[in-house]
Amino acid sequence: LIVLAVPIQTMRATLEKMIEHTAPHAVVTDVGSVKQYVVRELEPLITGKRSLVAAHPVAGKETTGAAAADPALFRDRRVIITPSAKSTPEAINKIEQLWDETGACVEMMDAATHDAILARSSHLPQAVSSVLAAALDTEKIGDKLAAEYGAGGLRDTTRLAASSWEMWRDIFVTNREAIVAALKLYGGTFAEFQRAVETGDIVGVEKIFNRGREMREKLR
């Protein structure tokens, strides 16, 4: 069993150096946040009776490195498996068992659906957090740095901005089209909110505010 846990654009080169030394029935899987690119890049390397079962544990932190390890990270969290032409039933079962052992909840979907969903539910929040933090980085009112006066709300909404650029660089490159669609979705709602504030349409502001609160309350 080979689990690729490296930046997405390095997965192919990493596996190329390993594959000839693996067992004839080896199963290759990954933990990348983009699945179409991973499947497209890795499938040509899966020869003989070897299998590929692409997977994505939808859990993580903004911290990196061994010191940030958490044995309970995947418990009760979703892991998405995206079977492909190189996924045998036996290999899929093996990866399901692997993630079951961590306490995760496994489900399957096609790679394109995964990438579209994650662009909205994971990649967009990262972009929003990072852009907000960048906008406030040096923003001053008089001689006061605005960000220094932020409390829990600012810390919570910019938490993801501390994430590893090396990992996110590859996500933005390899899932670009889906992320652009997600940014347009957000941009449309943000523009609607901005117009309502600018025109004093407090009813419009309230509607968007309440839509946001309802969505937040649905999150587990």
Rank of each mutant, 00 (worst) to 15 (best):
I117F: 09
I117E: 01
R120H: 02
R120S: 07
S121K: 00
S122R: 02
S122F: 12
H123Q: 13
H123C: 04
L124F: 04
L124V: 05
P125G: 08
Q126Y: 11
Q126E: 02
A127Y: 13
S130P: 09
V131G: 00
V131W: 07
L132R: 04
L132N: 07
A135I: 11
L136V: 12
D137G: 10
D137K: 15
D137I: 01
T138W: 06
E139W: 12
G142N: 12
D143N: 14
K144S: 04
A147I: 06
A147C: 02
Y149G: 12
A151S: 15
A151H: 05
G152S: 14
G153K: 06
D156A: 07
T157H: 01
T157C: 00
T157W: 00
T157K: 04
T158M: 02
L160F: 04
L160R: 02
A161R: 03
A162D: 10
S163F: 05
S164R: 05
W165Y: 12
M167P: 03
M167G: 02
W168R: 00
I171D: 00
F172L: 15
N175Y: 01
N175I: 03
R176V: 06
R176H: 14
E177G: 03
A178D: 10
I179N: 05
A182S: 13
A182C: 06
A182K: 02
L183C: 14
K184A: 15
K184M: 13
K184S: 12
L185Y: 12
G187T: 09
G188R: 02
T189M: 07
T189H: 05
F190L: 15
F190G: 05
F190R: 11
A191E: 15
E192T: 13
F193E: 05
F193H: 07
F193M: 15
T199R: 08
T199E: 14
T199G: 04
G200L: 02
